[in-house]
Amino acid sequence: MKCETAREHFSELVEGSIDQTLKFAIESHLGACPGCTQEFESFGQTWSVLEALPSFEPPPYLRHRVMDAVFTQPEQTRASRSIWDRLREGFFAPSTMGRRLAWSGAALAAALVVGAGALTMHIPGGTVATGVVPIPGQVSRVGLAAVDVTPQWQGNDWALAISGPSELIGVRVFPAEEGWNPASLASSSPVSELRLATGMDFRNSTVLKPHLSPVESGVSVAVLQFHSGGMSRHIAVFLPERPRSIAQAVAQGVSVRPLEEALLQISRDYQVAIVADTGFSATVTVRGGASAEKTLESIAQQARMEYQSLGGGAFRLTKI
């Protein structure tokens, strides 16, 4: 066998996918040819280095950058645009929104509430759920979660909402068929997702209050608080089912406060996240402050005005 022929089959030899007869012939050649033997050793080492190349984390801002680019393309490049596309663009326009909600996940974020109450909006063409999420500052309380989701959202998926120090960072839906359960969410996913989203390493964080409710219980909200480097982060996990009762939620370890009481204590800015089951999403910023007295209705009114100023129709806002 010629050296050139033997070397043409180095890859197959390393992979073990080579025909046995050919393998025998090449190995015989290697036994008699020091040059090819050395070449093959070197080839194997090269292969090992290739296999050991590390994988890199995408930068945390990349998702937002890409999603912005995708959904703000010039019209002629879009294959088709629904009314929801147009509404979404309207809401996401920087000139009309004080700040964008950093959605890194799904539109099903709607019902997340941490530190405040939950609302549901009905607008023409679809049902919209809202959540109220604190924007700046650290999380001072854990378990201050209203238990609610939009009853119109049917399904078995989990939604994981991640809240950062200054804004809602993102929401991600974990499909039921992927086998997520409370334990796996608590032990790994929120931590890695937080690390991805914030660029901070939470692997050494302490899970202070792992209030996770079993899926079977029907309790829809669970809150985790992480503590790392003197800063706290919280995560709320909820299920698309309404809890049977507040008492049941409390019994499961989720601390719940009355909606109105939570909202009246608004001392920070909040974002009202509006997400429809059609994929439409937007946010409305509600300014808080030491003397701010916000009520459910005042927030609703502001959201309604902003929504209508952006071309949306009337909607009804109801307490759950």
């Binding site: 994988s55 890199f56 984390e57 995408p58 990349l62 998702r63 890409v66 999603m67 995708v70 959904f71 088709s80 645009r81 629904s82 929801w84 596309d85 979404r88 959605w103 890194s104 996940g105 799904a106 539109a107 099903l108 991600r172 839906v173 997400v275 059609t278 994929g279 439409f280 999403s281």
Partner: peptide
């Protein structure tokens, strides 16, 4: 295909790391 932004966001999650690398 129905222009569901949430679905696209999720699809992005599935491919982001692979595409970036």
């Amino acid at each position: 295909k129905l222009r569901d932004a949430a679905a696209y966001n999720e699809l992005y999650s599935l491919y982001e790391r692979k595409m970036y690398n």
